[in-house]
Amino acid sequence: MHRDRGTVRRVPTGLILGVVLVALAFLVRALSPAFAGWGLPDRAQDTVTLALSVIIESAPFVFLGILLSTVVQVWLPHGFLTRFLPRQPLLRRASISLLGMFFPVCECGNVPLARGFMVGGFTVPESITFLLAAPILNPITIITTHHAFGFDDGILVTRIVAGFVIANVIGWLYSRHPDPDSLLTPDFAASCARPEQDGHEHDHPHPPAAGRMQKSVDLFARETAVIMPALFVGSLLAALTQVFVPRSVLLALGSNPVWSVLAMMALAFIVAVCSNVDAFFVLSFGSTFMPGGIAAFLTFGAMIDVKMLALMRTTFTTRTLVQITALVALMSAAAGLLVNYVG
């Protein structure tokens, strides 16, 4: 009885506070156009518009990624995912690189998901493999790429094969690392270690649903605390480069077999378009750039761009990200050049 009353009293305070804050935010938003005439200069206005468009486009995927990650960490039995994977490391990573087929989250959502996988028992190289492969090897990306290019010039096949190979080669390289935990930021390495301690405390096989709800909400708070600032900063960087780096500089390089590849990779890095729609985006460059440039754009851009690096920095050290970026860039360029010279 006593406990019931306590719960009933506590819930409304928080609920009312939350609802009032949300209502207040709506009110501010609804009233703001009334003080129009902010008179922002065009470039500043466009920077805000572009950054906001990336945030509004990506935030739902981030939420979806966090929700799936929560399902993996809180609602599925511990080790549920790893149970079905082969034990042999090479085969295991190859299977992991196809997991994106079941979690078509887009690359921004893959970061919280990969974090969830690591907490749930994946090794560091395994999650790197997932993180690099999933944006390309997922049904939405494959369908949109096919829709945009069909089987022309081997662009679709190159993208799929290169995505698989690059993710697995990098996963293999890092599996030889003597101390994979040192690839992670200290904060994240610590939070990976924590759930195991929790596990000893309440070890019963079916924790009560209320406890799981609380854990899910807590995970939402923790993951958004890390991912949302990165998303904001990454989007702002992407918007600033869009507004201040003229795209025509890159377009001048389109018809040279080597430069077209490098220019398209640079473009992919700064535009930071989601992998499941970048094929439509790059379609408009199809007449200016050689197919190898397009293939390199679709391979490199899906794995690495300015926004992704900001997101991945939440989990991996700068040193690791520099290595991964260099490796992905080299192999994507190789794939692009192969298409231009051989295809």
């Binding site: 928080g14 949300v22 939420f63 709800m213």
Partner: peptide, 12 residues
């Protein structure tokens, strides 16, 4: 997301 935001005020 809105549900989770409000829920995080409810859950200690």
């Amino acid at each position: 997301g809105l549900v989770f935001v409000v829920a995080s005020f409810v859950v200690p």
